[in-house]
């Protein structure tokens, strides 16, 4: 039996710059854990799944808790931005609806106030709600070590349940999402396991843009969570839709393809069925949002 216990003892280090954080990480490889909101980390520490000697806090590092325009690259979200801040941002709700909706879904108000977007990705749970939305939006991560930084598309980030490509001394600092082009829209649909506030059983995000003037899908990305060892893209379903005139029938077909792309383990049959339902809902809503979106979000 595993007991939820008090926290094991550890030394807390507060980093005031990214550099400093990286130095602590590389000098104590394997013994340090990064603390963002702590809503995943502290639970894991209580369960003794991780027992770090040092816990390094990022709160004092300036700039990591902001959402900023980053020129042509798009919108840059600091790793420490909380789910609450994203869910409540009018700009997010308007232009990156799927992400705002995903962050609004996460946990309870207490969890949304503490939990960060970066923590959600770095924890790399298969059911991380922000991941499908960020996959659909084509997010790129900025990862930093003492040796420098690299830009990695989110699709390349997850390597398995609760594991990522992050090096032991590497830090996620920013998440950049390119602005959607033209008439575009996005949506996130999910089903929880049991109660209304509960872990996601199936989550599907879609972001798409339409060719000016008609219902032809210019570009689309679909992200899924909780249906495979890591959050995934439904690439085959996307190509079914890309370049085609959208109809309910076509979306239905694509949804079934997405269902085939999923690889759930438990509740497998029901989950696969629900992938089709959630993808259909997400793509349909994204389409309607795009169609209603006169100006587009591309500024």
């Amino acid at each position: 039996m595993t007991y939820i216990r008090r926290l094991p003892s550890f030394e807390y280090v507060s980093a005031s710059t990214v550099k400093e954080a990286c130095a602590v990480l590389s000098n104590n490889k394997g013994k340090v854990k990064i603390l963002a909101g702590g809503t995943d980390l502290l639970v894991q520490m209580k369960e003794r799944k991780v027992v770090p000697e040092y816990v390094i806090g990022l709160k004092q590092i300036s700039g990591l808790n902001k959402i900023e325009e980053n020129g042509k690259a798009g919108l840059r979200i600091g790793t420490l931005v909380t789910h609450h801040e994203i869910a409540r941002s009018p700009q997010m709700q308007e232009n990156f609806t799927c992400l705002a909706k995903a962050c609004e879904k996460i946990g309870t108000p207490q969890v949304r106030n503490l939990g960060t977007i970066g923590g959600n990705l770095c924890n790399a749970g298969p059911s991380a709600d922000s991941a499908p939305a960020l996959l659909a939006l084509g997010a790129v991560l900025t990862l930093q070590t003492g040796r420098g930084e690299r830009q990695v598309p989110l699709e390349k980030f997850f390597t398995g349940p609760f594991s990522t490509i992050l090096e032991e001394d590497e830090l996620l600092t920013f998440i950049t999402i390119p602005h959607l082009k033209g008439k575009s829209g996005s949506a996130y649909h999910y089903l929880t396991k049991r109660t209304a506030v509960d872990e996601t059983l199936v989550g599907a995000a879609a972001a798409l843009s339409l060719k000016a003037g008609d219902d032809v899908c210019e570009d689309v990305k679909i992200g899924l969570c909780s249906v495979a060892p890591t959050p995934i893209r439904a690439l085959k379903a996307e190509s079914k839709l890309k370049g085609k005139k959208l109809t309910d029938g076509l979306i239905e077909e694509a949804s079934r393809i997405a269902s085939g792309e999923s690889r759930p383990r438990s509740w497998a049959e029901y989950r696969r069925d629900m992938v089709a339902v959630m993808v259909k809902r997400a793509v349909t809503e994204a389409w309607h949002r795009a169609a209603a979106n006169k100006k587009g979000s591309g500024k």
Partner: peptide, 18 residues
């Protein structure tokens, strides 16, 4: 014969939202 859902995250009870 071991209990699988011995935590509130896995054993769900209704909240106001339900």
């Amino acid at each position: 014969g071991g209990v699988v859902n011995s935590k509130f995250t896995d054993y769900r009870i209704p909240m106001a939202t339900d």
